[in-house]
């Protein structure tokens, strides 16, 4: 059983990472950090760079938690990817970061967090920074 953390280089996701590591420590499980980025362009803001990746492993090690970092390129939506990986590793809990959105933002851009919350078949921990 693992704690699955959906990660992108944003403050919300970093908060989720810390919460996820703490949760994994509490449960005595390992943590799988999933950094999924949308393919199709040479550059994506969702990709965590090397420094960030090193920081992730360092934080996990400090907390004494086993960590695996997965960087994948996806074709579709992030919610589907997170849920797919959760099923694959049979995650005990999914940890995601929540962003405050204006009503217009919510209308125009939708929410992958919302989809994960609604469609998940296991507990979801939504974290705010």
């Amino acid at each position: 059983m693992t704690v699955l953390v959906g990660f992108v280089p944003t403050p919300e996701a970093r908060a989720a990472l810390d919460a996820g590591i703490a949760e994994a420590a509490r449960r005595g499980e390992g943590v799988l950090v999933l950094n999924s980025s949308r393919g199709g362009a040479p550059v994506s803001v969702e990709v965590a760079d090397e420094d960030t990746l090193r920081d992730i492993t360092a934080r996990a090690e400090r907390a004494g938690v086993a960590v695996e970092v997965r960087q994948v390129t996806r074709e579709g939506e992030v919610a589907d990817e997170v849920l797919r990986v959760a099923r694959e590793v049979d995650a005990s809990v999914i940890v995601i970061g929540l962003r405050k959105r204006s009503p217009v933002g919510k209308l125009l851009m939708g929410s992958s967090a919302q989809r994960i919350l609604l469609d998940a078949d296991r507990p979801v921990l939504a974290v705010k920074p």
């Binding site: 980025s37 990709v47 760079d49 992730i56 086993a66 695996e68 970092v69 960087q71």
Partner: peptide, 18 residues
């Protein structure tokens, strides 16, 4: 997965070191 603490795996995949 309950491996020993400190057993971190190297990050792999795109965007990381070649």
């Amino acid at each position: 997965m309950s491996s020993a603490p400190g057993g971190a795996q190297r990050p792999t995949g795109p965007g990381g070191p070649p």
